[in-house]
Simulated scan of single mutants.
Amino acid sequence: MPTNILILCTHNSARSALAEAMLNHWAGRLGKDVRAFSAGSAPSGRIHPHALDVLRQAGVDVSGLSSKSWDVFSGADAPQMRVVITVCDSAAAEQCPYWPGGPVKVHWGYPDPSNAPEDERPRAFELTRQAIGYRMLQLAQLPLDAMSDAELRQALLEIERS
Rank of each mutant, 00 (worst) to 15 (best):
Pro43Lys: 08
Glu94Phe: 08
Arg29Thr: 06
Leu144Ala: 02
Ala78Asn: 10
Ala124Tyr: 13
Met22Arg: 15
Pro122Glu: 00
Gly45Phe: 02
Tyr98Thr: 13
Asp89Val: 12
Ser69Cys: 10
Glu20His: 10
Val84Ser: 12
Arg123Gln: 15
Gln80Thr: 04
Arg121Thr: 09
Val34Asp: 11
Leu144Asn: 05
Asn115Tyr: 15
Val106Gly: 00
Gln130Thr: 11
Ala91His: 09
Val87Met: 11
Met81Phe: 08
Arg135Glu: 06
Gln95Cys: 01
Gly109Ile: 08
Ala91Ile: 05
Leu137Asp: 08
Ser41Gly: 04
Asp77Glu: 13
Phe37His: 14
Gln57Ala: 15
Leu144Pro: 05
Trp70His: 02
Thr86Pro: 14
Val34Asn: 06
Ala131Gln: 13
Pro79Ala: 00
Pro111Thr: 09
Ile85Pro: 00
Lys105Met: 14
Arg121Cys: 03
Phe73Cys: 13
Ser90Val: 03
Ser69Ile: 14
Pro111Ser: 06
Gly75Ala: 11
Trp26His: 14
Ile85Thr: 03
Asp33Ala: 15
Tyr134Lys: 13
Leu18Pro: 03
Pro97Phe: 05
Asp53Lys: 15
Asn115Trp: 00
His107Lys: 10
Trp70Met: 12
Gln141Pro: 09
Met81Pro: 10
Gln130Gly: 07
Val62Asn: 05
Asp33Val: 09
Glu126Arg: 15
Val72Asp: 12
Ala78Glu: 10
Arg135His: 04
Asp33Ser: 14
